[in-house]
Each structure stands twice: as structure tokens, then as C-alpha cells.
């Protein structure tokens, strides 16, 4: 039985009231959206806030809508199940719909939110454990200790970014809208990340992620998401691959992007993906050769740590396989790639 440490629950009914609570209590307050990341972490005493601020009663944070000029706005409190099922998201951003639909299992997708998945805490086998367990090993670099159990003598935390939607949003060039004491801040999702597992996001504790904005895509847009995990039903990714291909009217690739997750503390973009695929028709042997070249590049860049389930060498060996398959799925307008 895992009991929660004591805290008080607040349920503000407006954004201003929520921000006022965050300003008042500072680091003693934590925001709860779906609770599927925060509640287990509180049970493990990884975070022990005095005040838990729920965003459930702020209706404007929920739902998918038109943001003008072809942009789509997704409220941060929109559930992952709703993102996965939304017809506009599926049409405009298939990789995001697929990624949201592969997060954990049905109950967790019903509870979990898009904003919560973007801001998901990093994960490590030495970190996501009970206080008793962690104490027995003298704690770790990320929480309460000074020693890394993954990298001998390591001084930088290597806990893995494990959010499925993040790489998909990066390929889509999504923007995040934060609201804080200084007002609204719009930032490309690429600029959110830090390569530090202890805190891998540039986001202040007194600001709220309120909205994810997706730029318009044309009829030549293709996207897919591939996810490696041990059980098809409930697990975090051992590897996540998001791909985007843009085709012209003749089916020739004009732009491409591939982003990997669950390999290190932040999602990683595969270098030269667009260059390797540019000008290739998205079918046949030439495409397969180009997809293999991108897969080889991804393999060279991938250095998974032995800190989440699954053998690290196996996870690395799966990187080119999943990159190639996910590119092929995107080209066919198919996906997700998810063979367990």
C-alpha cells in the first residue's frame, strides 16, 4: 500500500486564481492536471508539496479549437484520449494523434492530459521508487542524493525524457503558450528542453502551460509515430520515434523531420534527416535507401542509458529499425508503428 504524504487541495475556478495560488505558495505548491504522473511521484515522495492546485475547474484549458490562420489550439487540460480521437488533430497532425493514442493504457489516457504529458517528469529506475527503496541505496543525483547509479562518477542526471507527445510536437513545430506573473509567453517546443535529467524543461514553477498550438499543414503532410515498449498496453516508451514528411503534388519529399525520445534526458532530433530525404519520391527503392540512411544516422546518434527497462543495447539496435519503419508508415499515410 502506498499512502500519499499530506497536502491540501485547492480547486481554483479561473486562471488568475490558479496563478495567484502558485505565486502565494511558490515551491510549496504543485499543479495537478490528470494526476497520472504527479500522484505516483507524490506516493514515492519524489515531490512533497504542501498545496496541490487542481486545474480541473478551469474550463478554458480544455478542448481542441481553431486558433486562426489554420492553426489548431489544444488546451493543456485536454485528455490524451480526446487528443487521439479528435478528427482535426488526426487530419492535421497524425503523428500527434498516434503518439497520444499510445500513451500508457485506456484509463491513464482518459485521466492524463496533453499538457501533463509535455511536462512529464523524466524517468529512471533509480528514481521512480519508494522513499524506503531510494533511502536504502543512499538516494540518487536527481533526488535527495549526490550519487548517480547509472553513470559511475556522473555529475549530471541522465533520467530519460519519456513523453510520447513531445517528439511528435517537435516534428510538427508546435508552440507552447505559458501564462505566468509576467503575462503570456509563447515558445517553440524545441526551446523547452535542457539536456539535464534533474530538470529537463525551461519552465518556472509559477507559470502554467495553458495551450499547445499546431501550425497548419497542407495536403502533402505525412506523419507517424513509432513506439517500442515491453507490453503493448500500459508501458512508458523504451524508444519513441516521431516522423514528418512533406510531399509536393508529385509525391516528392520537400521537407522531413525525425525526433527520438526515451534515449536521454531530452528528445533528440535526428541530424540531416531532411537533407537525406529531400527530392526523393516517397515510395520504392530510392525512398527505402534514403530511409535507411536516416536510420543509420539515428543509430549513430542514439546512446540509450541502462536506466529504464529493456536492455540498452537492444534499445539501441531497435533505433534504426523503428526509424525506418516509422518513415515508411508516414510515407504510406499509415501508422502507428507498434509491434509488441
Amino acid at each position: 500500500m502506498l499512502r500519499l504524504p499530506k497536502f491540501e487541495v485547492r480547486t481554483p475556478e479561473s486562471l488568475d486564481a490558479a496563478l495567484a495560488l502558485l505565486a502565494e505558495f511558490g515551491p510549496d505548491a504543485r499543479v495537478i492536471a490528470g494526476g497520472t504522473d504527479l500522484v505516483p511521484n507524490m506516493k514515492h515522495e519524489l515531490v512533497t508539496p504542501r498545496i496541490v492546485v487542481s486545474l480541473a475547474r478551469i474550463p478554458e484549458l480544455r478542448g481542441v479549437g481553431d486558433a486562426g490562420a489554420g492553426w489548431l489550439r489544444l488546451g493543456a487540460m485536454t485528455s490524451l484520449a480526446d487528443v487521439a480521437a479528435d478528427a482535426r488533430v488526426r487530419a492535421q497532425a497524425p503523428a500527434l494523434a498516434q503518439a497520444a493514442g499510445l500513451v500508457a493504457g485506456p484509463q491513464l489516457r482518459t485521466m492524463g492530459t496533453l499538457g501533463g504529458n509535455v511536462l512529464l517528469d523524466t524517468r529512471c529506475q533509480w528514481y521512480n521508487q519508494t522513499y524506503f527503496w531510494r533511502e536504502a541505496l543512499g538516494f540518487c543525483l536527481k533526488k535527495d542524493g549526490t550519487l548517480c547509479h547509472v553513470v559511475e562518477g556522473g555529475s549530471k542526471c541522465v533520467a530519460a525524457a519519456s513523453n510520447d507527445t513531445a517528439p511528435a510536437l517537435m516534428t510538427l513545430r508546435a508552440e507552447l503558450v505559458f501564462v505566468g506573473p509576467q503575462g503570456r509567453r509563447v515558445t517553440p517546443i524545441d526551446d523547452l528542453w535542457l539536456a539535464d535529467g534533474a530538470a529537463n524543461k525551461k519552465c518556472a514553477s509559477d507559470e502554467l502551460l495553458v495551450e499547445v498550438r499546431l501550425p497548419p499543414t497542407g495536403p502533402g503532410h505525412r506523419g507517424a509515430y513509432g513506439k517500442l515498449r515491453e507490453r503493448a498496453s500500459i508501458d512508458f516508451p523504451l524508444l519513441g520515434v516521431a516522423t514528418r514528411i512533406e510531399l509536393d503534388a508529385r509525391g516528392t519529399i520537400t521537407d522531413a523531420d525525425v525526433v527520438l525520445t526515451a534515449l536521454q534526458a531530452r528528445p533528440v532530433r535526428v541530424k540531416r534527416a531532411a537533407e537525406l530525404l529531400l527530392g526523393v519520391r516517397a515510395e520504392g527503392d530510392a525512398f527505402l535507401a534514403a530511409a535507411r540512411a536516416v536510420a543509420d544516422q539515428a543509430h549513430r546518434q542514439a546512446h540509450p542509458m541502462p536506466n529504464i527497462p529493456g536492455d540498452a543495447e537492444w534499445r539501441r539496435a531497435m533505433v534504426p529499425v523503428y526509424v525506418r519503419r516509422t518513415l515508411e508508415a508516414a510515407a504510406r499515410g499509415a501508422g502507428p508503428v507498434h509491434a509488441v
Binding site: 505516483p40 496541490v52 487542481s54 482518459t110 485521466m111
Partner: peptide, 13 residues
């Protein structure tokens, strides 16, 4: 009407 996990749901919410 939707399935959720009671172990991760705060009763106060």
C-alpha cells in the same frame, strides 16, 4: 461513465 484509476484520483477532486 469513463474508466479511471481510483488509486491515482484524489477524492477531493
Amino acid at each position: 461513465g469513463k474508466p479511471v484509476l481510483a488509486c491515482l484520483t484524489l477524492a477531493a477532486l
